[in-house]
Structures are given as structure tokens and as C-alpha cells.
Computed example of a mutant assay.
Amino acid sequence: MSTARPSVVVLDYGSGNLRSAQRALDRAGAAVEVTADFDAACEADGLVVPGVGAYEACMQGLRAVRGDQVIGRRLAGGRPVLGICVGMQILFERGVEHGVETEGCGEWPGTVERLKAPIVPHMGWNIVEVPDESTLFAGIAGERFYFVHSYAVREWELHATGKFRQPTVTWTPYDGDRFVSAVENGPLAATQFHPEKSGDAGAALLANWIGALR
């Protein structure tokens, strides 16, 4: 096995905690570059798509640097992509915020919508309900992770049919509601929480993802 650090690009499209993600990925064992360069993003061992703020603004920024094309090209070649927070949300078909519907990347069916809980945003540490087959959460299934969001996917719509197996979907309960907090689907993975802000558990999750890049 190679001892070289896997190369990871954190996609800079004007949204996200770029430097904190860079530092966390570096500590977890990757050689990290923050860039909007199309070729670099396509060619790295792994691509991280962060995101904070409004769904519509994130999609505009992503398309401006052809990030949606980068994601599509990488996945067509089986090359890993990790979405974080709104970087996870934009992987779904659509987002609805304040009555405005925005088309997403469409890698998964589903709608990002406002949480139906008494207190929004959901901010702070929370559990995740991890399926037994998860690779991303190996060794950390009982840990808590840090969330800050008002919107999420509350209904999972992609199910196993024929030769296609069901993705590994992790859920989080919140104040009478629940939402998708992580997905593992071949080369495409994503978390609604911020692993870069989730202490040792988040660091272990990033290390698990980076380890799979080798």
C-alpha cells in the first residue's frame, strides 16, 4: 500500500468553511488544495464540496465554476466526492426555501425543505442513527456530531430496484422531526453535519473517507 497522502481538493465556489475543512482534512491524512480549478478538481483522488447559507446561492456559485460538471464527471468515473452541509443538500434534485424552488445537481431524488420542528435552526451536537453496513462511520457509530442548519431532506426517495442496491442512509431525530444526516452511495458520500467541527468523531469520519481513497 502506498504511504503517499491522497490528494483532496476542497472546491472553492464561494460558499463553505474552506479553511477549517482544509485544516481538518490535512490533519486526517490528506494532501489538500483549496481551488476552483476544473482540472484539479476532476483529477484529485477525492473532492470535497462544502457549503453554507442558502441553497439557491450555493447552486449559483457551484454552476459558476462548473462544479456541477466536475461532480458529474467524477462520479461517472467512480471517483470519490464528499458533500458537507449545503454541499450535501445540493446533491439532491431540488431545494425549496422561502417558497423559491431551485434545481440541484440531481444525483439523488428528493427535496431539501425546512425542518418541521419547534425550534429552527437545528444547532449543536446530535446523535446519528447509523446502519450496520456504514463504512463512513466505522468505529464511531455511537458518537455525536455538530449540526447547524434549518433545511434538510426529510424523505428519502431512492430505493433498491433490480440490480441497484439501496444507498446507506443515516438519519438524525430532532425535536419530533427527523432528517437524512448522511448518505453513502458508491463514490458519492455526504453529511448534513460538519465533520470539520465535530471534534474527534468528525476527524475519525474524515480519516475513514480519506482511507478509502488510497
Rank of each mutant, 00 (worst) to 15 (best):
R79E: 09
V49R: 13
L75F: 06
I210H: 03
Q89I: 00
P6V: 07
Y151M: 05
Q22D: 14
E93D: 10
R73C: 06
L213P: 11
A190S: 08
T102C: 00
V8G: 09
V130Q: 06
W125G: 03
E196G: 10
Q89F: 00
D12R: 13
R178K: 11
W209K: 08
G77A: 07
F147H: 11
K163R: 10
G99P: 04
T111I: 00
E101I: 00
V96F: 02
R178Q: 12
D12F: 04
G139Q: 06
F137D: 05
H159K: 14
A160N: 02
A21T: 15
A117S: 05
V180I: 14
V8P: 14
E107S: 09
G202Q: 11
A24Q: 15
G211T: 09
G106N: 04
D12E: 08
A24V: 15
D177T: 11
A141I: 04
I127S: 15
F164N: 13
I71D: 10
S20A: 12
Q69I: 08
L188K: 08
L158R: 15
G53L: 01
G162E: 04
P118D: 07
F179K: 07
L75G: 13
T172Q: 02
A54L: 01
S7A: 13
G95K: 00
V148M: 05
V112D: 03
L11K: 12
P131V: 05
D132C: 06
Q22W: 13
L115I: 07
N185G: 10
E56C: 01
A41V: 02
G176Q: 11
E43A: 08
E113N: 02
Y55G: 03
A21E: 15
Y151V: 04
R73N: 11
H149R: 05
F137Q: 04
V10Q: 04
V128P: 08
Y13E: 02
D175A: 09
D68L: 01
E133Q: 15
G14C: 04
L188F: 07
N208E: 08
V70E: 03
L11R: 11
L115K: 06
G95L: 00
Q166L: 01
V183I: 15
